[in-house]
Amino acid sequence: MLEISNIHTFYGGAHILHGVSLRVEAGEVVSLLGRNGAGKTTTIKSAIGLVRPRDGRITFDGTETTSWASHRICHLGLGYVPEERRIFSDLTVMENLEVGRRPARDDIPAWTTDTLFELFPNLAERRYNLGGHLSGGEQQMLTIARTLMGNPKLILLDEPSEGIAPVIIEKMAEVIAEFKAAGLTVLLSEQNLHFAKLVSDKAYIIESGEMRYEGTIAELEANSEVREKYLAV
C-alpha cells in the first residue's frame, strides 16, 4: 500500500536519509525501529510530504506522491500522527477533532467523535477543554483521535508510546489491533521494542539514515545480535 523506494532526504545541506526503502502492505502493522536521530521521523515526514526527498520514489495506494503537498497526500488516505503531538492548544478538544475531519470513504467505516470518545474515554471527559490544558498523555490521545477523524487508510504513528503510562500503552496496543481488524494499515515509528513487539507484524531497523534490517517481528525477537547492534537491547 505504501512503498518508499530509495529516497534521499536533506535538511538544508545535511544529508539525512541515504537511500531508504520500505514497503507496507494493506492491513499490516509495520514498525520502524531505530535509535535517536536514526531518521525515523524524517522517513515518516517524507512520506506525508512535510519534507521532500531530493531523490527516490514514494507511492501510496498505487499513486506516485513523491513531491506532492501534504494535504494532497492526506486526501489520498494517509494519516499522520506527529511525535511532538502538535495539538492546537488554543482550540478545544472538539475543535481539534473538527480540524482533522474529512469526508467518509466508501471502503472503510467512518470515524465519528462518538466512536473516538468510546476509544479514548479520557477525552470525552475533557471535550470542551482547551488542548493546551491537557496533560501530556491526554494530548497524545487527542492527536491520534484527530488524525483518525480524517478516515485514513494508512496511519503513520511517530512514537505514540512516548510519555504514556504503561496501562495506556497496553490500551493503545489493543487499539492498534482494533485498527487492524477494521482494515487500517499502520506504520509505526518506535523505540520501545516491548510495545512494537505487541502490535506489529513486520519490522524495519534504520540507522544513520540507512535501512539495516528487515524481517518479521518474530525473526527480530530471535535475532539478539541485530537487536543488540542497532537497538542496544
Binding site: 535509535r35 535517536n36 512516548e162 523505540q191 520501545n192 521494542l193 542496544a232
Partner: peptide
C-alpha cells in the same frame, strides 16, 4: 521531569 523522554532504550 521525564529526563529520558524520547531517548532510545540503551541511552
Amino acid at each position: 521531569d521525564e529526563p529520558t523522554a524520547g531517548m532510545a532504550p540503551g541511552e
